[in-house]
Amino acid sequence: MRIVLVMSIGHTLLGLLESGPCHGYDLKRSFDERFGRDRALAYGQVYSTMSRLLKNGLVEIDGLESGGGPERKRYAITDAGVTDVEQWLGRPETPEPYLQSTLYTKVVLALLTGRDAADILDTQRAEHLTMMRELTRRKIDGDLGDRLICDHALFHLEADLRWLELTAARLGELTLEIRK
């Protein structure tokens, strides 16, 4: 089971740099620590992102160390970079309304083909609750960060579930509508 964090990696790295210059490797570690959870950031992705930021003038090279290991650049955020982070944080995310849901499609198809739509809903409901149980368990055992992330997912799942319940209660009405 994965929780996919949908986020802008460029803005996140910039934001992490704002607390002080640091090396690419440290940036990756710090990102993984806070937001990695299920999937660590690939090292290559850090470098490609940093070079894009460098090109856009949002970061600058603060120092260069060589010898021992790989080349180590120290990055620092520029004023333009700080402005960019500020703008990103201040901009609301567009709510995603999921207007075309697979579940809805399944229910309609079941009704059209004369299958038991209630069964489909209940099966889905059980599946949702199973995942919610899993998340709840992780939430109980995890730290505050885990809890916030799990709750985010739980609330979304709960919203689905409430939709499932509501739809179950409206199946009769829906059948009439569809078979008109």
Binding site: L129, T136, E158
Partner: peptide, 14 residues
């Protein structure tokens, strides 16, 4: 009637 609360259970009946 809250799914999040029900998620604390091992099993549910409706």
């Amino acid at each position: 009637h809250e799914a999040r609360i029900a998620a604390y259970s091992d099993r549910e009946i409706v």
